[in-house]
Design a protein around this nucleic acid. Sequence first.
DNA 1: AGTGATGATTCGTG
DNA 2: CACGAATCATCACT
Length: 297
Amino acid sequence: MLIPLCFALCSLRKHALNCHRMKPALFSVLCEIKEKTGLSIRGAQEEDPPDPQLMRLDNMLLAEGVSGPEKGGGSAAAAAAAAASGGSSDNSIEHSDYRAKLTQIRQIYHTELEKYEQACNEFTTHVMNLLREQSRTRPISPKEIERMVGIIHRKFSSIQMQLKQSTCEAVMILRSRFLDARRKRRNFSKQATEILNEYFYSHLSNPYPSEEAKEELAKKCSITVSQVSNWFGNKRIRYKKNIGKFQEEANLYAAKTAVTAAHAVAAAVQNNQTNSPTTPNSGGYPPSCYQSDGRLQ
DNA sequence: AGTGATGATTCGTG
DNA sequence: CACGAATCATCACT
């Protein structure tokens, strides 16, 4: 009678011990995350010995929207990621991908958690039954039963901690991948670069596109407004640093816009034969296809 | 592998 | 907050 109980407890102990270890690296990362998210660690008090590790895990899962209230699919993390990527809605594909994966993690977490809770209950009743059987051969105090139940619950909560740990790890990996992907860059298409360069060189005296112009350029180039801003920021500084190097490029685009303008003029002339052709801009740079306020026509 | 080009990020400033 | 400047990280070409 005593043997099955001992065996059960031993196997449980072994499992729990295996699960109990926490990687130091992960731990420090989690601490950092906690600091950054500004979450109160005092918030989630755990009964028994208040385990700071478990509290951190709980807080992180809550912050990531894994263990929190249903729906929203990790709104906190998604919002943070969105903010990190410039706050525009241009990365909606990546966001939805991120959210989908987070939902997946969340689902796994909840089913596993449920499974553990169920297993814990089953095991407790199992042990209770064993104790009941034993009570026929020897007296068993309520205190002993209570102690036994306490042991089981502690062991199962440490298993739960392992689940929380691995869930946190999964979220961390997902996040780092998401942020890494954000950092990866693709060169803009040749067409986009051309459009940007055309604007830049035809506004060389004041290469600062207005917000509207940026939006228009962004639309034309199929990039984001912040990418346009980045491009102009980079272009201005690099042009200024080495005007000589860009001279050829400047001439090229000047010629190009001149040709476009000439075509436009020719078309205008054809449309209105009576009008005399306007003289092209005699300055260093050709007449642009932009309005006086810098907007594309 | 080395190297220049280029898009993105970070930080200081007005 | 927009911008300049410096820097990082990757691309693209040799």
